[in-house]
Design a protein around this nucleic acid. Sequence first.
DNA 1: ATACAACAGGGACATATGTCCTTTCCGAAA
DNA 2: TTTCGGAAAGGACATATGTCCCTGTTGTAT
Lengths: 232, 232
Amino acid sequence: MKKIENREQLNNYLKEYQLESIFNKSLIEHLALYSFEQGEDICSQGDTSQYLYLLVKGKIKIFTSSSEGRKLILSFKTPLYLIGDIEYVQDIDIINTVEAVSPVIMIGIQYQWLKKFGSEYTPLLQFLLETVTRKFYIKSNFLSFNLLYPVEVRLASYLLSISFYDSDAHNDSGLSINRLRDVADLIGTSYRHLNRVIQQLCAEGLIERTKESIIVINRDALSTLANHNIYE
Amino acid sequence: MKKIENREQLNNYLKEYQLESIFNKSLIEHLALYSFEQGEDICSQGDTSQYLYLLVKGKIKIFTSSSEGRKLILSFKTPLYLIGDIEYVQDIDIINTVEAVSPVIMIGIQYQWLKKFGSEYTPLLQFLLETVTRKFYIKSNFLSFNLLYPVEVRLASYLLSISFYDSDAHNDSGLSINRLRDVADLIGTSYRHLNRVIQQLCAEGLIERTKESIIVINRDALSTLANHNIYE
DNA sequence: ATACAACAGGGACATATGTCCTTTCCGAAA
DNA sequence: TTTCGGAAAGGACATATGTCCCTGTTGTAT
């Protein structure tokens, strides 16, 4: 991580994401920009947490690992995204590892300044409350969905979600399709089994596999299989 | 659900749980007590949400159901516990079903009063933020744990958690052991498979099964099997 | 052109788990 | 005491999934 000494750039991000009203003057003075290289960890599970971060540029991957090395990707995120909120309020160690998937820029502020200047500042409290409740809702749906449905349904849902995005902004979706190991970690299965299910969906004519991508052929059937659920 | 017209009883609960400072005068005027019978639904998944509730007496069960009728129990809760917070802030329908496991008493307030008198009241915002972040942390750990570990590990963890409690307050734990169907729903497996795993743990000498309970024999081995994780 | 390493996909086998149905036991009612 | 219904447990079978390892392909270096 590298601190960016560029107050103007920081102010531009505050303006771009309309964050000026969330932080009061005393807080804004302690905001700073930080950059992370692709592949770098922003936070590591189990470490002491000290910063509240706001992702303002790039893409990150959030995941958790079990003591057996089993890895569960919780999500990929792009701006605007808040990191360290739960840890700040609960005063606990970092819950999940956050890794930069591309070069990343964050606005960061140390917890001590939040405690000093922010704990009774209504706009910040409202912003945190709104953000945390939305994350709660999305994450609990994601994890419940993974628990309640077989891999076939989860994969269908995932494929729908990325092809839905791809019709808008080409390949700026949650995950490039040719990193199937990440897809396996995201939907909570082994790489081997993911390939089985992909093969089966190809055999059923719902999707087609090319060298570097998977094409949705029968969107309606896939949607039915996915129970009309879409990964967010 | 039945409204309890007893202002003194309400004030007693506010005092008992030190809630008077969380709600301002205008909010307290709109608080009310409600009672629910055992087995009654307090909220139903998918319904419109209108009330923020605080559980002040009894025990509840929170669960979600899939469209195939698969049921996942998220937790059992006793006082003090907040319901409807995510739905209030996000303005969405009820996420999970909440059912009274025993006769239950709740403090309730309609969202309209919260919006009118509470959305800028710092103590309430702080209380909501603190509560929501704690729930987020506990629930995401619970669901991740269910996803990352096999049933054997999850059952071991569950048995440790209830026997840990039972050494304190007899049978006031999350679940009475002889409703194994609920245990199956809580740890996310079928009733059949749960019985297999119980049988196997008995054969290995870690637990012993009697007519109405399961006794932990080898607590250390169970703890090792559970990866030193305990269901909260 | 060749060699080697890394990556991707699949075979074989095993285990975990779900589904369906049967048997046994227990409690309540007649 | 007998009967019946419900609940609990397990047998049998099938499917879902994980693990391990092998084969083939591709890209890079010599």
